[in-house]
Design a protein around this nucleic acid. Sequence first.
DNA 1: AAACCGGGGGC
DNA 2: GCCCCAGGTTT
Length: 258
Amino acid sequence: MATTELASWYSAHGRHDLPWRETRERWFVLVSEVMLHQTQVPRVLAAWPDFIGRFPTPEAMADAGPGAVIEAWGRLGYPRRARRLWESAVRIAALGWPDDLTELPGVGRYTAQAVLSQADGQDAPAVEVNVRRVVERVTGRRLADREAEAAMVEIGAPLIGRDRLLALMDVGAGPCRPREPRCQECPFTSRCATRGPLELETKSRQAPFEGSFRQRRGEVLARLRAGPTPIALLDARALRSLVTDGLAAIDDTTARLP
DNA sequence: AAACCGGGGGC
DNA sequence: GCCCCAGGTTT
């Protein structure tokens, strides 16, 4: 089996222009990984340099406070990520990095493995949506989490660790894209079980945004980013939800970032 | 297992 | 209009 096809494909077609791929510092990798959760690469590319420039270390972010981080997060979406990132920074600044990175808020199995493989040179398989799509199409069936990790190791060989993750990720974002894959350009085409999407491949669907509670939450947060606001002007339930998430603070009759 | 988060880009 | 995005947490 020509297993070196992935390596040569990655060398020629991988994304070698992403700034967070140039570092092996845990903090830089963690910030980029969190920012990339459910957020497309072009949007992170536009926001990451300024953000990491402002918070170049966990200490810098911890000292800045949650409101400054939420404000700097801007309109990237899922602002709970910003709050949890600040909480992680506080913990790292005070106690150092935990042995188990999933102890950090907002860090699950994928992110922990992604940081270890990219920053620490460990051979930890990290499966996100792109990798999962590739290995499920190549093997021809849906895979449980640990199965997908094992498949990632087999299919990615002889690449390991960081290169394996980035190469498979780029295959998933390129030729093995969700819709209308370009199998002729894929390094796995000769050994792929499906050469196309699996049946019922995408399973998650989100509720309509217009008129939703999410929309109201977003509007309240946008207002608070502009400055302290009288509570009476804000959607009460949305504001309460933001306070619960640590994204807003209330004193007397005014709401503001925490 | 499914819902939730919340903003945008591609087609 | 629908689908998707380098997920994690909560129910």
